[in-house]
Design a protein around this nucleic acid. Structure first.
Length: 862
RNA sequence: GGACACUUAGUUCAGUGGGAGAACGCUUCCUUCACACGGAAGAGGUCAUUGGUUCAAUCCCAAUAGUGUCCACCA
């Protein structure tokens, strides 16, 4: 017997471990059609946040839905080593433990990092379990494990041999805190307040000067020339002359290039090829030297004279003061301009000339774009995100993949100690003593990009790869379309000649109650484990997946989780009630619509309709729409109507009616449990295990299928009359200030013969005394229905009743006017579809009929 | 500078080319034998603004305003 109150903790206790130990999460049934989802591997840097909970719950709903539909469901788990983020955290931990990280070796560090990984992986496993994520742990992978390293090396060597990976000296984004290169998308441009400095660059040998503006005076030590537009009437006379760099007194040539925009700024631009991507292009074009003026930690280096050793921002201050003192300062302006920050630690990124490894993106991007025009395109849900992907691909630049870190896949390149020859190969050269391996590792996203196939054993031709790849569905947030989705697509197409997934379901971000992004600095993050502690995993899951439309952001609102919990309590209690009625020897039988009373038929019609709608929306990944169909069915149809009305049959002497009612109650309850199961597996399992004739787990059941054979709408009209009567009686009692259980004298006449079907219901449920008459007296208070009428003898509240009637008549009159206007419009009659016209005609007729009846009633009342 | 999204009830959000919906909140009533984490009844909206397409626009199109997000090397 179920407890009176749904207690999520009691319900959720032990279920996950049971499922897992029984092997229900394990894929591999060859008799079924495979369906594959790989988890977006969370970083081993910390615990899962509410965004992860959303992401994985969507996946789990799909997984549980597909599994119940009879697919061989593979939901593959794993985690990401998250190079920079993890290395930073482990280093911090070592510092906190008093370890001198400057003396530590690569090997020692990696030992610490692996220990860290184990600890955090353990934590994440526990969180997945709490949330009920049905992952196949027999196939769990880590982006840094042996097999994935093999895949990474294979891809690197392959791309290198095709000329799609190269080593080059280019301007990259330098993170001076982590002291590593970053890719473009790891840099966040934000508008920061800053200053534009204007300096005089005196002309050599003349009493004249050029005014040059810059936001980064400290880079002046790397200036190689000043550029003006050759068509600039005011400035072209300076081309060929030399100017003095006010920072260090160097003589710089003035050159002409139409890259510089006339009229922008002062019209003269200083060129620092080693520290600005545009200047780099110019520097290269004219063959200038490219002096690097920063150390790796972004302090000034020896090229900066007395400023050597100063922090870049400190240098800026001092230098500006010195230029002022020398009389070359013109002015400053306060400006707001975009400044690049490291995505990981928010420090200001420094553009810096550096030798790094790059992936040549153009050919790979072209291939990905071309694939979107084919039948095997990746289907974005919602569709609009495809444009985000394609426009990025169209403009993508080469991808800097080398990182100056330890925690990651070490690049399989080797340098010959004597000749300097570079060799890229799967395995180290045989005479390794003569070679040094590249010390850099690869960008974390390089290995993540291979995730959908590397986890299945690629490049080996494994059974799993053959069976489960390409995967069916990837679920992720729109914020990592560039980082991850795009890269999986091009790597997969290049390496496997197949798309990595058929569908990619994009969701938004979880925001706080005020719509703000959750962040550590605001301290407004919500820990899913706290929510589970308070409301249970099922309520959290239900809330997360039913409160937004696909691709849209969502706010975390505590009351809504509470509402979800109330809904589950509602289902719980209805189940408790149904189970309390079913006889001990109850045995489910196949339903046959010829046994149904009109009410039974009605609820079965509603159920089948619900199954159809839920399934259709599940298939579209629209979980909000799917769940609301079920919600309405549970509250309005099942609990609101059928559960109450069926009490009549249950309390009657009609054993046949009782038996059918029991069968219907059982069937509806079981279907509700199965339909809610993907969302809230714990409570579904608990209820399922309490219904008669259950299997060992709800996970062994079959998902409901729409069954047309059970549907019959011929008695809908009768049921609707009944419901309308009940509603009117309730209204009547309220309007007349009668107690809900007050006895009423009613006279009812129905044109269609539903007396047999409803007499008991009418007597038992809503009314206390029902009197049936053949004719309705044209006096007293009368409520009229399409198929009949109901007479209520009434003395009290006559005035209120008249008021209400008048109000109803007003609104129905305006409806009639609307209909008549429409039907009187020649445009409508000639152009609207025939069925629309028919519909309006019927409406008008109905309204007129209702109006006449209301008016009769009103006049009889008066 | 480009691109995308959003603007609907007090709040958070669904939705549809032809009579405006949910949840929460609010008002009134009810502890009646599944559930007061409940039930019944109800109030509350010129669907941002202005044009256009259409027989018909909250919905499609365009512009405007506001909000948010992403992309972008402009000194």
């Amino acid at each position: 017997m179920l407890e009176k109150r749904y207690d999520p903790h009691q319900v959720e206790e032990g279920k996950y471990e049971n499922w897992k130990s029984k092997g229900y999460f394990t894929a591999g049934d060859k008799s079924k059609i495979p369906y594959t989802i790989v988890i977006p591997p969370p970083n081993v840097t910390g615990k899962l946040h509410i965004g992860h909970a959303w992401d994985t719950t969507i996946q789990d709903i799909i997984a549980r839905y597909k599994r119940l539909q009879g697919f061989d469901m593979l939901y593959l788990p794993g985690m990401d080593h998250a190079g920079i983020a993890t290395q930073a955290k482990v280093m911090q931990k070592l510092v906190n433990n008093g370890i001198d990280v400057t003396k530590i070796t690569r090997e020692e560090f990696l030992k610490w990092a692996w220990a860290w990984k184990d600890e955090y992986a353990d934590n994440i496993h526990k969180q997945w379990a709490k949330m009920g994520i049905s992952l196949d742990y027999t196939r769990e992978r880590f982006t840094l494990d042996e097999g994935l390293n093999y895949a990474v090396r294979t891809v690197f060597v392959n791309l290198y041999n095709k000329g799609l990976i190269y080593q080059g000296e280019r301007i990259i984004n330098w993170d001076p805190v982590q002291q590593t290169a970053l890719s473009n998308i790891e840099v966040i441009h934000q508008d920061d307040p800053g200053k534009m400095f204007y300096f005089k660059y005196p002309i050599v040998g003349e009493n004249d000067s050029l005014i040059v503006a810059t936001t980064r005076p400290e880079t002046m030590f790397g200036d190689v020339c000043v550029v003006v537009n050759p068509n600039d009437e005011n400035l072209k006379k300076y081309i060929g002359k030399k100017v003095i760099n006010p920072a260090n007194g160097d003589e710089l040539p003035v050159i002409g290039d139409d890259y510089v925009e006339i009229g922008f700024g002062t019209g003269a631009m200083k060129c620092t090829p080693a520290h600005d991507p545009n200047d780099f292009i110019i520097g290269k074009k004219y063959g200038f030297p490219m002096p690097i003026i920063f150390n790796k930690d972004a302090t000034m280096n020896e090229k900066c004279g007395k400023y050597c050793g100063l922090d870049r921002f400190e240098c800026r201050k001092v230098l500006v003061e010195d230029i002022k003192a020398a009389g070359n300062f013109v002015k400053t302006e306060d400006i707001v301009h975009p400044v690049g920050h490291s995505e990981r630690n928010n420090c200001v990124v420094e553009p810096m000339l550096s030798k790094q490894w790059f992936v040549k993106m153009r050919p790979l991007a072209e291939q990905s774009l071309k694939n979107q025009d084919s039948e095997t395109k990746v289907n974005f849900v919602p569709e609009r995100f495809e444009k985000v992907f394609t426009s990025w691909m169209e403009n993508v630049e080469d991808w800097c993949v080398s990182r100056q870190l330890w925690w990651g896949h070490r690049i399989p390149a080797y340098y010959n100690k004597k000749t300097g020859e570079v060799r890229v190969s799967m395995d180290p050269p045989e005479d390794m003593e003569n070679w040094d391996q590249e010390s850099d590792v690869l960008d974390t996203w390089f290995s993540s990009a291979l995730w959908p196939f590397s986890t299945l054993g690629w490049p080996n031709k494994t059974e799993d790869l053959d069976r489960y790849f390409p995967t069916d569905c990837l679920v992720t947030g729109y914020d990592i379309i560039f980082f991850w989705v795009s890269r999986m697509i091009f790597q997969s197409l290049e390496m496997t000649k197949q798309r990595p997934f058929k569908n990619v379901v994009i969701h938004g971000l979880v925001r706080d109650e005020l719509g703000r992004k959750m962040s550590k600095s605001l301290g407004n993050g919500v820990d899913p484990m706290d929510v589970i502690e308070q409301y249970g995993a099922d309520a959290l899951r239900y809330f997360l997946t039913t409160n937004s439309t696909p691709g849209q952001d969502m706010r975390y609102i505590d009351e809504k989780v509470q509402a979800a919990s109330n809904y589950l309590n509602k289902i719980w209690n209805s189940a408790r009630y149904v189970l309390s009625i079913l006889p001990e020897d109850f045995a489910p039988k196949a339903l046959d619509k010829k046994d149904f009373a009109p009410l039974d038929q009605w609820i079965i019609n509603r159920l089948e309709e619900t199954i159809k709608n839920v399934t259709a929306n599940m298939d579209k990944f629209d979980f909000n729409a799917a769940s609301s169909h079920l919600y309405n069915f549970v509250y309005d149809d099942f609990c609101g109507q059928y559960l109450e009305m069926s009490k009549v049959a249950l309390n009657s002497d009609d054993t046949k009616a009782k038996e059918i009612t029991n069968q219907v109650l059982y069937s509806v309850l079981k279907n509700i449990i199965l339909l809610i199961y993907p969302y809230t597996p714990f409570i579904a399992e608990e209820l399922y295990l309490n219904i008669p004739a259950h299997k060992d787990s709800v996970m062994l059941e079959k998902y409901p299928l729409y069954n047309k054979e059970l549907v019959d709408e011929s008695s809908e009209g009768q049921v609707n009359v009944l419901f309308a009567m009940i509603k009117d009686v309730r209204n009547y009692k309220i309007e007349n200030k009668l107690a809900p259980n007050a006895k009423l004298e009613l006279k009812i006449k129905l044109k269609i013969n539903v007396f047999d079907a409803f007499e008991t219901y009418l007597k038992r449920f809503t009314f206390s005394d029902v009197e049936f008459v053949d004719e309705i007296e044209n006096s007293g208070d009368i409520n009229v229905y399409n198929e009949g009428s109901m007479l209520i003898k009434n003395e009290a509240g006559k005035e209120d009743l008249i008021k209400k009637l008048e109000k109803d008549i007003e609104s129905i009159k305006s409806e009639i006017i609307r209909c008549e206007k429409m039907l009187g419009n020649p445009g409508f009659v000639s152009k609207a579809p025939a069925e629309k016209i028919e519909l309006e005609k019927n409406k008008l007729e109905q309204h007129k009929k209702n109006l006449a009846e209301l008016e009769t009633k009103l006049s009889s009342l008066k």
